[in-house]
């Protein structure tokens, strides 16, 4: 379980958690788990139920469908939240392109976590809005 001063300072530098006070960051550091993946391993699996929420601590990953990369994710980026929020399986794979270290939260813990930390929810919403805008621009 991640909980040291190092984890707290890493979290504090990620945009998603930038508004949290130090005590709140410590609480978050104790709540999130940490997992690591070698390059080329799948982290999020398209069409498999029950995804978790991931925030990248170190490394990079691709979002891809049928092996076709759509976007690159790096430190501070997060994924899995759409599947958690909609209750639907992920619509794409996320595949590590380097050694990838992520903070994670199991799906069922995401709602209470966001309600407990509304500034994190707001930052997440801003990010989703940006993504929606990009998606609309592409379509238009």
């Amino acid at each position: 379980m991640a909980a040291s001063e190092e984890t707290v300072s890493v979290l504090g530098r990620l945009a998603l958690f930038a508004d949290l006070s130090l005590p709140a960051l410590e609480s978050v550091a104790h709540t999130l788990d940490e997992v690591a993946f070698p390059p080329e391993s799948r982290v999020l699996r398209r069409d498999l139920s029950g995804a978790a929420f991931y925030v990248i601590r170190d490394g990079e990953a691709n979002v891809s469908i049928d092996g076709r990369p759509l976007a690159t994710l790096a430190r501070g980026d997060f994924f899995g939240e759409i599947a958690v929020l909609t209750g639907q399986p992920p619509g794409a794979d996320v595949i590590a392109t380097t050694l990838l270290r992520c903070f994670t939260l199991p799906g069922p813990e995401v709602e209470p976590f966001l309600i407990q930390h509304p500034t994190v929810m707001y930052r997440m919403l801003q990010d989703e809005a940006r993504r929606l805008r990009i998606a609309n621009t592409w379509q238009g």
Binding site: M1, A2, A3, S4, E6, T7, E34, V35, A36, F37, P38, L99, R101
Partner: peptide, 18 residues
């Protein structure tokens, strides 16, 4: 490689270091 600030080795599904 480790997770949780060096406390736990990060492993493959077959328990080999990643």
């Amino acid at each position: 490689a480790t997770v949780s600030d060096g406390r736990i080795p990060a492993l493959t599904p077959f328990f080999e270091s990643i």
